[in-house]
């Protein structure tokens, strides 16, 4: 039987690093409708933070742009989170998704963003086109 969407939300905000905290709080507040446990909630919070930080840091690289976050809740206790930007895009998605890969030369970034998103969710998809933008979609099924 096909799962049915029971609720959804969409928000658009600027690529200001102050919005990292806002985005993860808003998504976890919305996802709370599915009554996740503390660990699931923490996983969702971290995943959103990683995806939004990627858009701000790598997609827009300090320039101002818009980030869209869409969340859909399903009747099988799963949720889908989509974070999209119209930033510079990723040249090589496969390479970017390798744990410890980072374009940062300062040694301040561990290159763990995608590895964390993958580990903390049930599926992760990254679609990106240089010059056009990036769409990151994660799904998570709750217990």
């Amino acid at each position: 039987m096909k799962r049915k969407a029971i609720n959804e939300m969409k928000m658009i905000f600027l690529s200001d690093s102050k919005n990292e905290s806002f985005a993860r709080s808003a998504v976890t507040a919305f996802a709370a409708q599915l009554d996740p446990d503390m660990e699931e909630l923490a996983d969702i919070r971290t995943t959103v933070s990683e995806a939004v930080t990627n858009s701000i840091l790598h997609g827009y690289r300090g320039t101002s742009g818009k980030i869209t976050v869409e969340v859909k809740l399903f009747d099988d206790r799963s949720l889908r989170i989509r974070v999209s930007d119209r930033g510079c895009g990723i040249e090589d998605v496969e390479q970017a998704m390798q744990p410890l890969f980072t374009t940062d030369k300062s040694g301040e970034r561990g290159g763990m963003g995608f590895a964390i998103m993958k580990s903390f969710s049930d599926s992760l998809s990254v679609k990106s086109k240089p010059g056009v933008g990036t769409v990151v979609t994660v799904t998570k099924r709750l217990k």
Binding site: T53, G107, G110, M112, G113, I116
Partner: peptide, 10 residues
């Protein structure tokens, strides 16, 4: 998140 990890590793 990974930024905190980066802070500690740095």
């Amino acid at each position: 998140d990974s930024a905190g990890l980066g802070l500690i590793l740095g």
